[in-house]
Each structure stands twice: as C-alpha cells, then as structure tokens.
C-alpha cells in the first residue's frame, strides 16, 4: 500500500484516494517530429527497477495532478512535487542521491 503526500493540499493519501498516471516528464512530440520521437513519446517507457518518476492525481481529494519520486524495487517514496515542472526539483534529486548514490533516470541524475 502506497502513501503519498499531495503537494497541493498536504493530505497524506492512501493510494485508493489517488489515481496513477504513469511515467512523468514525458515530452510531447507532435506534427513535424521524427517517427522515432513520436513512437517513443507514445509507446516507449522507462521501466526501471529502482528510482522512478511518476504522475499521480489526487482524484478523491483536491483533484490535482502532481509528481512522485519512488523506488519500484522497495516501494520507498522519496518525495512528491508539483506538476508544473519539466524535471524533478533539486531538493528531490539531492534526497535521492543521499539514498541511492549514482542513480540516473533518463537525462536526470
């Protein structure tokens, strides 16, 4: 059972209060992009055993989308942060570095 804190309303949510939204920080490729970029945007997914970034929605609460940094191997939650960002905030990255030295995820590390 996952417990995530909604960064907007501050509620500590048990996962049935939330709706999982898949991989975070996906760049949307549209008309004019290469076939490879478009395919990767639609279908290819990070599937790490370890540090992972995701989108969640506080669906039975304030209703807002937010981000979570999690470990898929231990289910440890490193932190949650607002949706309005293209990459995880430095403080989250630092926190992960403290616990998982040498981690990387896509271009982030």
């Amino acid at each position: 059972m996952l417990l995530l804190e909604c960064p907007y309303c501050g509620a500590k949510c048990e996962e049935t209060e939330l709706s999982p939204g898949g991989e975070a920080h996906i760049k949307r490729y549209g008309p004019g992009s290469s076939d490879e970029d478009f395919e990767a945007y639609l279908f290819m997914r990070e599937n790490p055993k370890g540090v992972h970034f995701e989108r969640w929605r506080h669906v039975y609460g304030c209703g807002k989308w937010f981000h979570a940094a999690r470990c898929t191997q231990s289910l440890e939650v490193f932190g949650t942060y607002a949706a309005q960002t293209f990459e995880p905030p430095q403080e989250i990255k630092d926190k992960i570095s403290g616990k998982r030295p040498g981690w990387s995820w896509r271009d982030f590390s």
Partner: peptide, 18 residues
C-alpha cells in the same frame, strides 16, 4: 517482468511497463 531491465543492459527501450 524484468524485460525492461535486460533491455536496459543491452541499450534499448521497450514499450513495456512492469
């Protein structure tokens, strides 16, 4: 379930989530 991990070792991605 570990297909993504093995693909990562070989340097490619898969349209798969575990």
């Amino acid at each position: 379930g570990h297909s993504g991990v093995l693909a990562d070792m070989a340097g490619f991605r898969l349209p798969i989530e575990s």
